[in-house]
Design a protein around this nucleic acid. Structure first.
Ligand code: FES
Ligand code: FES
Lengths: 147, 147
DNA sequence: AGTAAAAAAGACCTTAAAATCTTTTATAAT
DNA sequence: ATTATAAAAGATTTTAAGGTCTTTTTTACT
């Protein structure tokens, strides 16, 4: 569904949020450990996310990644997916056509479109914060050891 | 969602079904033209599908791909996806964990699982025949020119 | 028997995603 | 100023999906 890169991006942001709540400002190594992903790859993803201003970074001693007042407003998963996968993600045809067109539908359209829409709504509802809160409450985990 | 290869596989089978209804026994070149996919790649996919006995093939003059009495029972999209993507397809975690586990859920599980299940049900309901029928009725198309 | 037609098989190539390695730039403490 | 720390940037590698090319095998027609 989502690419591995997008999944890492979401998990990374949740990691920053959880660390922030503990008064920490994590670096990419901490984040990578948190979400069990390759360090340098996480570093690249963080670069993308900061370039798109989903969060801020500072270099050097005591540096790391963090949210500012600007970002303190909720980041929807929709935003992250939009950045990482592109806007076409939300309108792809489930049958492989170049794009979805209700006026010239593929044979899956009528049934696929609502499912795609449900997923989009999920991405428009859940935020980095909401996921972090579930984890903080112990209702979910950010990472799981292999099995 | 589905890989390009799986999409080709489904469309190829629908093409065989439509051709059969017209009394034809298509070869991979005809199928490739029908579904607007690369000839040799379609040939490879057809090899996989025949190996898994979703349909039969005969070589040489007058050869091609066709369904037998055995296959005349409906082929569910579920079967095709199972073959092309593997059984793990239906139980993947939307958050990137190795697998989905309701007892140790990711923060998307509660909302993602029903969506994944809805898609699985769609694949268990629709068949190669049902798609072919929609196309025959003019309710949908098998292929679309670029745009 | 010989030939043409078609799928099967195997080797190979291309592209994009995922991942790694190395160098540079910014920051803060000493 | 120097040094340690950390992100940014750039180049490169690896892996897997997607795609192509060539040869072999099977089949039917003449
Ligand atoms: S046309 Fe295929 S999903 Fe809409
Ligand atoms: S654990 Fe992630 S979807 Fe079930």
């Amino acid at each position: 569904m989502l690419s591995k890169t997008t999944e890492y991006a979401i998990r990374a942001l949740v990691s920053v949020e959880l660390n922030s709540r503990k008064g920490q400002r994590p670096g990419f190594k901490t984040i990578a450990r948190d979400i069990d992903a390759p360090e340098q790859y996480v570093a690249k993803i963080m670069q993308t996310l900061t370039r798109f201003k989903l969060l801020k970074s500072v270099r050097g001693r005591g540096g790391g990644f963090f949210f500012t007042e600007d970002n303190q407003q909720d980041i929807f998963l929709y935003d992250v997916v939009w950045i990482m996968e592109g806007k076409t993600f939300f309108t792809r045809c489930g049958f492989g056509f170049k794009h979805c067109d209700a006026n010239n539908p593929c044979p899956l359209h009528n049934e696929y479109e609502p499912i795609r829409e449900a997923f989009t709504q999920l991405l428009k509802k859940e935020t980095i914060r909401s996921l972090a809160t579930k984890i903080e409450k112990g209702e979910a985990v950010l990472s799981r050891l292999s099995v």
